[in-house]
Simulated scan of single mutants.
Amino acid sequence: MASELTDLLLAARRSGVAVDPLDPALVPASVEAAYAVQNEIVAALGPVGAWKVTPKPADGPCFAAPILKSGVYQSGATLKAADLPGIGIEVEVAVTIGQDLPGKPGGYGPEDIKAALGSIHVAIEVLATRYKDRKAVPQLAGIADLQSSGAVIVGPPVPASSLPEFGQQAMALAYDGIETKTTAGNADTDNVLAALAWLADHAAARGLPLTAGTVVITGARIGPADVSAKLISAEAPGLGRVAFNLV
């Protein structure tokens, strides 16, 4: 039987009516409890088409969430703002996994992940929320809500053999063709590979292993940013351009 928080979040997705207020008693007591809610949402609405993972911190684990296959789009897609309450934009480096990554004794390492990469992309994550205000709820409640995932728009593939140094990866976000935010770099390539190795182990342990074709976004490099445009695009030298229309 699904938890009460799961039922509330599913009802919000189906009705479009936000959870407000959130009963403090329903906030997950641990990150494991938050992940259990994620799994229940996926069981109800899946399958999984992508994952999001945070950069690897100096101490402790990353955080992660599956993204529903119904929320994965290619560049040029048109999305409805009404389907994305509390919308926000993040520009990210994404990878597509090139081979299945089931549970592995001893776990995966960065070199395993490097060998398993199919392609690299610039991507836009569209944040959405099932709460009235995603910024106002406790972190564990946000994690339970698939880490506020709404959609991911994936740019053109770049061969994984050309794996760049992401620590100096420039990116720019534009609204209606006007550049609005830029970055000169963020988490480096070693960090990205370490986070992906952690995710491969984590996803397998949850019974949702990474499979060939799965997209993984690796943490915001620009954003979260509010949206005030119809055409949202991002460019990254060496990775190309990704864009979508918002109606």
Rank of each mutant, 00 (worst) to 15 (best):
T96G: 11
T96C: 14
T96W: 12
I97H: 04
I97F: 01
I97M: 03
G98T: 12
Q99E: 04
D100S: 11
D100C: 09
D100G: 10
D100P: 08
L101S: 07
L101E: 05
L101M: 14
L101F: 13
L101H: 05
L101C: 09
L101A: 14
P102E: 15
P102H: 11
G103E: 15
G103R: 07
G103M: 07
K104V: 11
K104Q: 12
K104S: 13
P105D: 15
G106H: 06
G106R: 01
G106D: 04
G106Q: 04
G107E: 02
G107S: 03
G107N: 02
G107L: 04
Y108N: 04
Y108M: 06
Y108Q: 09
Y108R: 05
G109R: 14
P110I: 12
P110T: 14
E111R: 02
E111Q: 02
E111I: 00
D112T: 04
D112N: 05
A115R: 03
A115T: 04
A115S: 07
A115V: 01
A115G: 03
A116E: 02
A116G: 00
L117M: 10
L117I: 10
L117T: 08
G118C: 10
G118W: 13
G118I: 12
S119C: 10
I120K: 01
I120S: 02
I120L: 15
H121P: 03
H121F: 08
A123E: 05
A123Q: 07
A123S: 14
I124Q: 06
I124A: 09
E125S: 00
E125G: 04
E125T: 03
V126K: 03
L127D: 11
L127H: 09
L127S: 13
A128T: 07
A128R: 05
A128N: 07
